[in-house]
Structure formats: structure tokens, C-alpha cells
Write a protein that binds this DNA or RNA. Structure first.
Lengths: 368, 368
DNA sequence: TTGTAAGCGTTATCAG
DNA sequence: CTGATAACGCTTACAA
């Protein structure tokens, strides 16, 4: 999964055999307890009754197994298995317990970059035996994105032991106060004003430097950048681009783009190409804008004279028909390290930068 | 009460005074209310005290507002606002109430097609004042995808009034029994064996017919299809393709693809082009496979002789450098109608097919 | 080790 | 409309 350039699509479904039904329904003959459990989820009480122990003991088996005798533990566990019992995290959390639930709040489910981060984090959480609850924090639809406070407070009520925020969530202050007490880690975004919040993100300064070094190494001197003021990420990348250019004694030609879509990238690239001294290389703040630029460049027949680079190394960049040089920000590592930070009880609110890598493809050739 | 105006608003961080922990017992005297609420979420009791009404009345205001006098309603509401009170859905659900929560279980968060469905559904749910909780139902990582039972049972414990399953979730039987009693609607997948479950999906038969009609209309006679046995969706589309061909008195050339990635589509297309009588048009079961095919076709310089079509009309298809003719399955409508079905109390477990639309782009031209 | 009882925040019921 | 009380499933003192 997640191999660069190819990605399975929607259509694959898991055509497995219908899984064995571990049902709470009373179909396990001899137990007299089963009459009660018909039609509803088995509770701790049902388990206790079947195992012939007390309710508290059952609870103990799950919370501190070491303090219960192996024999009784076994009795409880097999009773639980027979009834298909699963602890009710909801009821548990009502008690104020910060248990094994970890909330994952993703800013934009559409964004494939965030998906990669989330996926890696979920794997890490699952390995650690935690229950990662992935939710979308942002309301879709009308107007500018805004925080879904209902969802946030619901997750908060669940008393997660930690909260992983992936991407730029609109109103972090609310989130922070809502889950008051849980550890928070932000992935793929800046911590912003939030206090005592750890964050893990890609090192955009290093990434842009990789791009510029690469292009300068190819002989390019006049290099343009399509970016702008639209978001913290965009602003950071513009700065990083300019700084990297200065390191080489060059001045970058920055053009602002209204948004960061293919179309906007296309238009911005045309504007750059129409300059008196047009750039021989164009860097995009993301892959989509860069693809728009690439389209413009190829349309003008400049495919082998003007280099184009993207950022994020989404699977778009790896498609054969596109072949866009792009910066891989290390999303999997970002996700993994964010999860580690969340799980490590004595981690401090650090800010971790993950080192990026340049994926060179056909779109960036030698300067003319 | 002394609390008036002294309680910090929610947006104001509690950075200043460290939250004093107040013993939860024995403090319900006449002590000013604000002392108690420091450091913890306001509860219905806090609101009742501040508004000078009973706990039950506060509950009533939220559950059946019409049965409470406007004056008291106002008192309660402003007290709630002052305290930053939000009902605790978790506690509510413990009680067995099927309230305004709707669970959304998405099979694969990576899949942009499902994203579109989910987005439309969330908008519809929000319009209806429901709280849509978007979660991922499938565990990432090792091996074949399998259902995250913990997440499912957690959502079930929330006692959602409805459950929207988007995409092909591995073990529907478990899901159905878990949320026993809630209405379930499946979007963008077949109901499978599940009983009494409504479903909304694209009409793939119609979609494939659109494709074949289009190609035949362009003069194509030898038409290939890249698809296979990998999933119910793939199987359905193969059948639909063959049936549509038969309608025109033609026989389709179907080639199986190991998976449905760009790379696999590329290989399959090469195999088709190497036939003794190669097809003049290639239909892919999805956009990604079709893009692989398109790459092969263009590589061989057959770009204007061999037509290629995709399915799903993902944004890949619309990119200028790709320009892939594709079937738009109406994902937004699927999501919207699924949400409607979920909300309508007397909807029956129907199976709704949404009519697709063909988006013609540069990849499908006249037959030679 | 085990059992008992209180309590988490809410809703439902029911007599005032 | 109020106030009291019992659930919901679970945890956690505290007592046996």
C-alpha cells in the first residue's frame, strides 16, 4: 500500500468469506445466562455471571490483569469469548478514565498527503494496542472550513488518552481546551499558538533547498516559484524558496497564485513564461499547482527546456503521463513519529522536523 | 449567582489560573457556582443551578423544546452559553437513547470516490441538524484489510440513530449485528447478504452502456476491457461491459488485471495491443487502470488511433495532461440520497441506483 | 483475592 | 414545571 506512483483504487473490495459470527445472540445452548443476553450486547455483568465471579473481578481482568489469579483470569476470558463480550469504551470513559482510546482528528479527509500521515499513525497505534478513532474535525459545505465542535466535544467526552491532530485545523484553541488533560500532538501542521503541544512536520526549508540545489545543479539560474499567501504552509514554502535562492546568490521570481489548484498553476505558469526574461525552471508549492505549470510548459512545446518541480510527492507526481519531480516530505515517518510522541508518557512538547527527500523525475531536465 | 460573567469564555484559554481540582462530593451547597465548574466541563447540573431550574428541565429544553416555556428556555440557554455547556452525547447514549448521532463508516479513507460520497452525505446530515461522526472502519497495515471491530463496537455503543456505510466494508454481518436496531444504509457498495439494509450506488450497467455506446458511436468495433475478478465492483463492471457489447452485436475482449493500479493497467493494455487484431478502444474498470492504459497507448504513438476510457471521473481524469473520458457515477447524489434514506423514518430497505453521466475528454476520439 | 456501593452525565418516569 | 429516583456499563475505593 502507498507505493509511490501507484495506488489501488476504490474498486478493490475484500471478497472474503463471511466471517464467523461471534454473536451476542443466545445461540450457545447450555448456558442459562444466555436467555438474558439475547438481542443485546453482553455486559460485564453477563460475563461475571457466566464465569461465576464478581463484576469487579471482570473489570480487574481488563484493567490490571497481573493482580488476578491465572485461573480466574482464564475463566473470565473464556466466558467473555463465549458471549462475544467487548468492553464498552463509552461507559468506561464516562467514569473519567483515560484509557486506550486515541482520537485522530484529520483536518481534510480529501487531502492525500494527510491520508498518508494518518495511515502510518494508525498502524503505529494499532501495534501499541491502542484504539485509534479516526474522525474528521472539519465541517464540509458552505463557506470557509470551520471546526466541527460537536465532533470535537464528542471525542473529548470519550476521554482519549491522546489526541492526534493531522493537518491545519481551524480553531486549535478550542480543541486544546476541549480535551483538557489529554496529550496532544500535531502532525503536518504548525503548533501555532497552542501551548504545550508537540508537533511533527516536514522540514519545508530543507525541502525547498533540495529543489533549488537540484535545479541550480542542472544549470538553471532564473527560477520561478508559484505560491502565495493562502496558507501557513504556502507562506513557509515561499520563504524557504527565497532563502534557498539567496544561498546561491540568486533572486527568485515569485508569483502569487489565487489558490493552489491545477488551473491556478497553469495560469501562473503562463504569466511567468510571458515575462521578458522567463524562468527556465518553475517550482510549485504543491504537486497540483506544479502539474498546472507542467501543462502550460508542455503546451508551449517547452517540455525539455523548462523544468518544473512539485511538492508532496503525491501519487499524481508518479504517474507515467506526468512524471513530476517532487519533494517527498516523509509523511509515513511523520505519522509514525507523531504516534510515538503520543504514546510516550514522558515526551516533552517538542517540535520535530522530518527530513524530506527529492524524487527526481522527467519534469526536471538540464537547463538550456 | 456569582458565576455571572466571571466564567471565561470557551475561546479563552485556561492558561492563567491552574484549574483547581474541587472535590466532587459534598460541594453542592450554596457555594458560588463558578468555583465548582473550574477545570471540568460544565454539566447539566451546573446549568440547572445557574439558571435556577431543575436538572430535568434543562434536559427537556434539549430533548423537547416545545414543551418548555419560552422564558425558561431562554434562561436555560443563556446559562448554558455562559458556562460553555455542551450536552454529553456519550452519557446520553449510555442511557439507550438513539439520538442525533449518525455514524459514518468509510471503508477506505484513501479512496477519493468515497470521499465525494462522504462529503455530500455529511453536508446533508448537517443540514438536518444531525451529528455525523466520520470514522474509518478498516484497519490499515498488514495483510488484507479487515474490519476494525473495536471502532465498530465503539460507534455502536454510541447508539447512533443511523449508520452510513460507505464503500465495501469487509464484514458487514458484524456491523449489522453490532448496531442492532439502528437504521443502516450502504452507499457505493452492494448490500451483499445483509438483510433489511438499504443501499445507494451508481448504476454500473448504465455507466458501461454509456461508454460502449459512445465508443461504438465513434466507429469502434473491437473494444477491450481491463477488469477482473478482484472485487464485486470489478465483476459487475465486466458483466456490464460484456452485456453492452452484446447489445451492439459485438464481442468484448476482456483482459484480467492483477490489481487495479496504473501499472497493472499499463501491462494489460500492452497485452491487448499485442493481440493479432488489437482493439481500437480500451475501457478501464477505473480511472487508474485506464490511465495506465493511456500511458501505454501514447507511448506507442497510438494516441489518436486507440481510444481509452476510465470510470469514476476522479479528478485525475480531468487533469489537462491526462484528459481521460470517464464515467461520472454521481457520487454527490449517492451521498445525498443515502443521507436522505437514513433520515427518513419510514424509508424501506430499497436499493437505489443513481444514473451516471459520461464525461467525454480527449482520450476518446474517432476510430481509424 | 472478592464483593459492595458509590458515582460518571444523561434520560425517563412519576408523583407532586 | 419540580424533585426524587432508577437506570445505562463501567471503574474504583473500601470493606470483608
Amino acid at each position: 500500500v502507498g507505493a509511490t506512483g501507484t495506488r489501488p483504487s476504490l474498486s478493490e473490495a475484500r471478497s472474503g468469506t463471511a466471517a464467523r459470527r461471534v454473536s451476542p445472540v443466545g445461540d450457545n445452548g447450555r448456558v442459562s445466562a444466555n436467555a438474558e443476553t439475547a438481542g443485546r450486547r453482553a455486559t460485564i455483568r453477563d460475563v461475571a455471571r457466566l464465569a461465576g465471579v464478581s463484576k469487579s473481578l471482570v473489570s480487574l481482568v481488563y484493567s490490571s490483569p497481573e493482580s488476578v489469579s491465572p485461573e480466574r483470569t482464564q475463566r473470565v476470558l473464556s466466558a467473555a469469548a463465549e458471549l462475544g463480550y467487548r468492553p464498552n469504551h463509552i461507559a468506561r470513559s464516562l467514569n473519567g478514565v483515560r484509557g486506550d482510546v486515541v482520537g485522530i482528528l484529520v483536518a481534510d479527509p480529501h487531502n492525500p498527503v494527510l491520508d498518508d500521515v494518518v495511515e502510518a499513525a494508525r498502524v503505529a497505534l494499532e501495534r501499541a494496542g491502542r484504539l485509534g478513532l479516526l474522525t474528521s474535525a472539519v465541517l464540509p459545505g458552505t463557506g470557509p472550513a470551520h471546526l466541527d465542535r460537536d465532533v470535537v466535544s464528542m471525542v473529548a467526552d470519550l476521554r482519549p488518552s491522546g489526541l492526534l491532530v493531522v493537518g491545519s485545523v481551524p480553531d486549535m484553541a478550542t480543541v486544546v481546551t476541549a480535551v483538557d488533560g489529554a496529550r496532544i500532538v500535531i502532525a503536518s501542521a504548525r503548533a501555532g499558538g497552542a501551548r504545550d503541544v508537540a508537533s511533527v512536520r516536514g522540514d519545508d526549508d530543507a525541502g525547498m533547498r533540495l529543489v533549488v540545489d537540484h535545479l541550480v545543479g542542472l544549470g538553471h539560474r532564473r527560477i520561478g516559484h508559484i505560491g502565495g499567501e493562502g496558507s501557513p504552509v504556502a507562506v513557509g514554502r515561499v520563504r524557504a524558496f527565497s532563502a534557498a535562492m539567496v544561498e546561491h546568490g540568486l533572486e527568485g521570481d515569485v508569483i502569487e497564485s489565487s489558490d493552489f489548484t491545477e488551473r491556478a498553476g497553469y495560469r501562473a505558469a503562463l504569466a511567468l513564461l510571458d515575462r521578458d526574461e522567463p524562468p527556465t525552471a518553475i517550482t510549485g508549492l504543491n504537486d497540483l499547482a506544479a502539474i498546472g505549470a507542467l501543462t502550460a510548459v508542455r503546451e508551449r512545446g517547452l517540455g525539455d527546456r523548462v523544468a518544473v518541480t512539485g511538492y508532496d510527492n503525491t501519487y499524481l507526481a508518479g504517474l507515467g503521463l506526468i512524471g513530476l519531480t517532487s519533494v517527498e516530505p516523509g509523511n509515513a515517518e511523520i505519522g509514525r513519529r507523531a504516534a510515538e510522541l503520543l504514546l510516550d508518557p514522558d515526551a516533552s512538547p517538542v517540535e520535530i522536523l522530518v527530513a524530506p527527500e527529492l524524487m527526481v523525475r522527467a519534469s526536471s531536465g538540464l537547463a538550456p
